[in-house]
Design a protein around this nucleic acid. Structure first.
Lengths: 194, 194
DNA sequence: AGTAAATGTTAATCTAGATTAACTTTATTT
DNA sequence: AAATAAAGTTAATCTAGATTAACATTTACT
């Protein structure tokens, strides 16, 4: 298992000693998933917080009408989890599915509190990660209320150009909260405009 | 200043000694605001994370068209802050205004890292609070995509009956992402239905 | 290479919710 | 108690985006 991308990522936020890195390595697990496999399924208890080494996942919610709503995509150097389920150890609202072959480093619920106790710096690290995630989530709410579908798409394209390339358009539509037909219309309008 | 509600609240998550409580008390400040006053204004740097002792605030965003979008209400035993601005010490996206006379306990940016260092349990406490806020925020995104305006209103009414009572309807409409006219229509429909 | 499945497009029609505007009710101030 | 401002209602009209359905293109599989 190649834990280096995770160590580099953590190193951007806090400084770990070699010993601490070794402890960390001993307490996380590594797993490969194939495209189409599930990391978590709606209704299961989410047992891990996962760091993406390679590949891509989608986190989504299926509503009462059976419609799928994508909450986030996670690529290299991002996190993926149903934190709501993870922190309370209750059934997940979301499913997480790999949309490419994906390598993950997984922090299990049973180990993570020990890890915090052994390396308090990691508690600081996770606090900061989660703070950033909360900020991003709040800004997404604002965008969903104050921008048109077209402007949300332009924002997405501009913010995540790498993700746009590798993901089918109908999933981007789901992430933006619109139908694939309407996204198609937006794109053809944008082409006419320039 | 009456810090007891804060201590009770913290006590639900972690256990502090009398000494730790005293340290905490020495590092936070207390302030009363009148209805209409601002805790933070869009464009300012947010210097505090605030715990509400009494009263009510609204956190909102004014978009390019001058429209106000309410992100959250905070009443007794809740938090209020523009965390994005707070953690990065950059200009706030949101304004926080008191919609009642309000008493706050304020954790300042300059002190909070010292406080974490002195009382590591508080870092755990804040991590957990922020995790919960993130979960709530993600669920709000899902609701904004998968529920109709009527169902979002029913959810709000059911989830926050106390808030519904004390807040003008046009602010609830703003929180739900609809116009006050449409909320009025929804309410009259609901009356006809029963 | 040929077929089936997945993904994307176009166009017509429909609807939830916005906009506008006139009006009513409730609070606040003098 | 009147006057004024703030909050809420109703109804007509409008629009962003949904729905439906038929078709086109790309990708994956035998």
């Amino acid at each position: 298992m190649n834990i280096q991308p995770l160590l580099n990522y953590i190193g951007q936020h806090v400084t770990l000693t070699k010993e601490e890195e070794a402890i960390l390595e001993s307490k996380v697990s590594y797993r490969k998933y194939l495209k189409g496999q599930f990391v978590v399924q709606q209704g299961d208890v989410c047992k891990y917080e996962c760091f993406v080494i390679s590949g891509c996942t989608k986190t989504y919610y299926v509503d009462d009408e059976g419609q799928e709503h994508i909450v986030m995509f996670s690529i290299e150097d991002w996190w993926t989890s149903d934190i709501g389920s993870f922190i309370t150890q209750t059934p997940a609202d979301f499913s997480i599915q790999c949309i490419e072959n994906t390598e993950l480093i997984m922090f299990s619920y049973d180990e993570i509190e020990n890890l915090y106790a052994e390396i308090p710096k990691l508690e600081r690290f996770f606090r900061r990660i989660i703070e950033k995630a909360l900020v991003a989530s709040q800004k997404r709410i604002i965008r969903s209320f104050s921008l048109s579908a077209k402007d949300r798409f332009l924002y997405f394209r501009n913010q995540y150009p790498k993700i746009e390339q590798r993901i089918p358009q109908y999933m981007i539509a789901s992430y933006l909260g619109i139908t694939k037909e309407f996204l198609s219309k937006i794109k053809s309008q944008l082409i006419l405009e320039q």
